[in-house]
Deep mutational scan, measured.
Amino acid sequence: NKFNKEMRNAYWEIALLPNLNNQQKRAFIRSLYDDPSQSANLLAEAKKLNDAQA
Rank of each mutant, 00 (worst) to 15 (best):
Q23V: 06
M7E: 02
E6H: 04
N4F: 09
D35E: 12
R8N: 08
L20H: 00
N41R: 08
L43T: 07
A54E: 11
L32Y: 02
A52I: 12
K47V: 06
A40Q: 06
A52D: 10
L17T: 01
Q38K: 12
N4I: 05
S37F: 11
A15P: 01
K5Q: 09
Y33W: 04
N41E: 08
I29S: 03
L17I: 01
L42G: 01
A54D: 13
D35Y: 05
A15H: 15
W12Q: 15
E13T: 06
S31F: 14
S31A: 14
Q38G: 06
S37N: 03
L17K: 02
N9G: 05
K5C: 04
A44G: 13
L32A: 02
Q53A: 14
M7T: 09
E13K: 14
D51A: 14
L17Q: 05
K25N: 01
I29A: 07
N22R: 12
N50S: 12
A15I: 15
N9T: 14
K47G: 05
Q53W: 09
A46F: 01
L49N: 03
K5L: 03
A46I: 02
N50P: 01
N1P: 09
N1W: 01
L43Y: 04
F28T: 01
A27Q: 09
D34Q: 08
Y11Q: 14
Q24M: 05
D35N: 11
K5P: 14
I29F: 13
W12H: 11
S31N: 11
S37R: 07
S37M: 14
K5W: 06
A15E: 06
Q23R: 08
Q53I: 12
S37T: 08
Q53P: 07
W12S: 10
P18C: 02
L20K: 00
E6C: 03
A27M: 03
A46M: 01
N50I: 01
E45I: 15
I14V: 06
E45G: 03
A46Q: 00
M7R: 02
K48V: 07
A10L: 06
N21M: 08
F28S: 01
L42K: 05
Y33L: 07
N41C: 03
N9A: 15
K5E: 15
A27F: 13
K47F: 08
L49T: 14
A40I: 10
D35R: 07
Y11E: 15
L20A: 00
D51R: 09
L17S: 05
A40C: 03
P36L: 08
N1I: 07
A27V: 08
F28C: 01
K25A: 02
F3P: 15
Q24H: 03
N19P: 00
K2W: 07
W12K: 15
L20M: 03
A44N: 10
E6V: 05
N19S: 10
S39I: 13
N21L: 08
A10M: 08
L32F: 03
N9R: 12
L49A: 06
E6F: 03
A46V: 02
A27T: 09
R26W: 04
L20W: 00
K2E: 14
P36R: 04
N1L: 06
L17W: 03
E45M: 09
R26C: 04
K25S: 01
E45Q: 11
S37D: 09
N4Q: 05
K47W: 09
S39E: 02
Y33S: 03
E13D: 07
D34G: 12
Q38E: 12
A52E: 10
L16S: 14
F3Y: 14
Q38C: 04
Y11I: 15
R30I: 08
N22L: 14
Y33E: 04
L43H: 02
N50M: 01
K25Y: 04
P18N: 05
R26P: 01
E13L: 13
E13N: 09
P36S: 05
L49K: 07
K48S: 09
Y33R: 04
F28A: 04
W12L: 12
A40F: 07
D35A: 05
K48H: 13
K48A: 10
A54T: 14
A52P: 03
E6W: 03
A46W: 01
I14G: 00
W12A: 13
K47Q: 08
E45R: 14
L42V: 14
F3R: 01
L49I: 11
R30V: 09
R8A: 13
D35L: 05
Q38W: 08
L16T: 11
K5S: 07
Q53T: 07
P18L: 06
L16E: 07
S37E: 05
E6Q: 07
Q23T: 11
K48W: 11
Y11R: 14
D51F: 12
F28L: 10
S37W: 10
P36F: 10
K47P: 00
R26A: 06
P18M: 08
F28M: 05
R8P: 02
I29M: 05
D51P: 01
N50D: 10
L32G: 01
Q24C: 01
N41V: 08
N19Y: 13
N21A: 07
M7P: 02
N41P: 15
F28N: 00
N4D: 15
F3M: 06
K5H: 07
I14F: 03
L42W: 10
E45C: 04
K2P: 09
A46P: 00
A40W: 11
N22I: 09
K47D: 02
R30A: 08
S39F: 10
L42H: 07
N21K: 06
A44F: 11
K48P: 00
R26N: 13
E13Q: 03
P18Q: 11
A54C: 03
L32M: 07
N4G: 06
K2F: 12
N1E: 12
A46D: 00
N41D: 08
S37L: 04
D34V: 15
N21G: 09
R26K: 07
E13G: 08
R30H: 10
I14C: 01
R30L: 09
N41H: 12
N50T: 01
R26H: 06
A46N: 00
A54H: 13
M7S: 04
N19K: 08
N22D: 14
L16A: 13
N1G: 05
N22E: 15
P18E: 09
L32R: 00
K48R: 13
N9Q: 15
N4W: 10
L17P: 00
A27G: 07
I14Y: 00
K47A: 07
L17E: 01
A52Q: 15
N41G: 08
Y11S: 09
D51K: 12
A54G: 08
S31E: 14
Q53C: 02
S31K: 09
N41W: 09
S37P: 06
N4A: 04
A44D: 11
P36D: 03
N50F: 01
Y11W: 04
K2G: 13
A44P: 01
D51N: 13
Y11A: 12
Q38I: 09
N19C: 03
L20R: 00
M7C: 01
I14M: 05
L20S: 00
L32D: 00
L16K: 15
Q38F: 05
N41Q: 15
N21E: 11
A10D: 04
D34P: 02
A15D: 04
A52S: 07
Q24V: 06
K48L: 10
N9C: 02
A15F: 15
L20N: 00
A44W: 11
W12F: 14
A40Y: 08
S31I: 07
N19E: 04
P36E: 03
D35S: 10
Y33M: 07
L20D: 00
K48D: 07
A52Y: 10
N19F: 14
Q23P: 08
N19A: 13
L32P: 00
Q24Y: 02
L17Y: 06
N9L: 12
S39L: 14
A52C: 02
N50K: 01
N9M: 13
L49E: 04
N21C: 02
S31T: 05
L16F: 12
